[in-house]
């Protein structure tokens, strides 16, 4: 990536991105059921919206991965890309906890052209060099490049919660759940650790929003900060479906490129 080294001074790159945490346009993946007392079907909606969990724009589900309690991949069915949401189903046939995730990785380029107009590009790694060349040809001044990795996740349990599928993957920003994500109850405290590339992520802001924001005056988001060991303790005050978001910003392995990791998980808190 010599091209970047030449064209993008680090000082410029550090000014690049506005954190999106807590802002509008939340991405989410919400299950119809998180607890089943016998094997059965579960349906999922994925959308991008300002109101949790009311769909506005379909979130692409090309990167969906479903892992069964024994660690095997599960096929999704009935996929639909709707106007406002994407949909897919799974048959949860085994006892234990399923992990359902949509991973997405993109590069963003932003610049201003010689007429002062904003230019930009979003795409995958394969198209990056061509896009950078185009940006270089058109840009007047700084070119901002960001590598973005996001993971939307949720969990579904048939019978007794199991832990096989909770094992951290060791890449990107992710949850290491000391409290099982399908064993959350109002009035209890959950202990979660956030890992960035397998290492505890210190000082990250964790935002927790209860669903149903359409019926409130504001999101009433609660925020928690991870400690040195990447831990947060979340005291669930009310039962409901929650959206938890964490974001980390840092340097890409490509010199001069910023990296943003987002982890977004939908969690159901039950009344006991």
């Amino acid at each position: 990536m010599n091209i970047l080294r030449k064209t993008l001074p680090a000082a410029v790159l550090s000014l690049l991105l506005i954190p999106t945490l807590g802002c509008a346009h939340m991405r989410w993946l919400v299950p119809s059921n998180t607890v089943l007392s016998e094997p059965g079907a579960v349906t999922f909606d994925a959308s991008i919206s300002n109101n949790v969990f009311f769909p506005e724009r379909a979130f692409p589900i090309d990167g969906v991965t479903v892992i069964d309690p024994e660690g095997n991949r599960v096929e999704v069915s009935n996929t639909l890309k709707g106007m406002r949401r994407s949909v897919f189903d799974i048959e949860a046939e085994k006892e234990g906890t399923y992990r359902v995730a949509i991973g997405a990785s993109f590069y963003f380029i932003r610049y201003k052209n010689k007429n002062g107009e904003r230019g930009g590009w979003r795409g995958d790694e394969a198209g990056l060099n061509a896009a950078l060349k185009e940006a270089k040809d058109n840009a007047d001044g700084d070119i901002q490049v960001t590598e973005s990795h996001s993971r939307l996740e949720t969990f579904v349990t048939v019978g007794q919660p199991s832990v096989e599928t909770l094992k951290p993957l060791g890449r990107g920003l992710e949850l290491k759940a000391s409290t099982h994500p399908n064993d959350l109850y109002a009035g209890e405290t959950a202990h979660f650790t956030f890992l960035l590339n397998g290492e505890p992520a210190n000082g990250l802001t964790v935002s927790v929003i209860a669903g149903g924001t359409r019926y409130r005056n504001n999101t009433s988001a609660r925020t928690f900060t991870t400690d040195k060991t990447g831990n947060v303790a979340i005291d669930w005050q009310q039962a409901g479906m929650y959206l938890l978001e964490v974001e980390a910003e840092g340097k890409s392995s490509t010199k001069g490129v910023k990296r943003r990791d987002s982890y977004i998980v939908t969690l159901e808190v039950l009344p006991e």
Binding site: S37, E38, Q160, E272
Partner: peptide
């Protein structure tokens, strides 16, 4: 029918799912 057993929420957590 085991399908609705988890609607007894506390029993399900403390007893049923085991």
């Amino acid at each position: 029918e085991t399908r609705w057993l988890h609607h007894m929420r506390r029993w399900w957590r403390r007893v049923g799912r085991d």
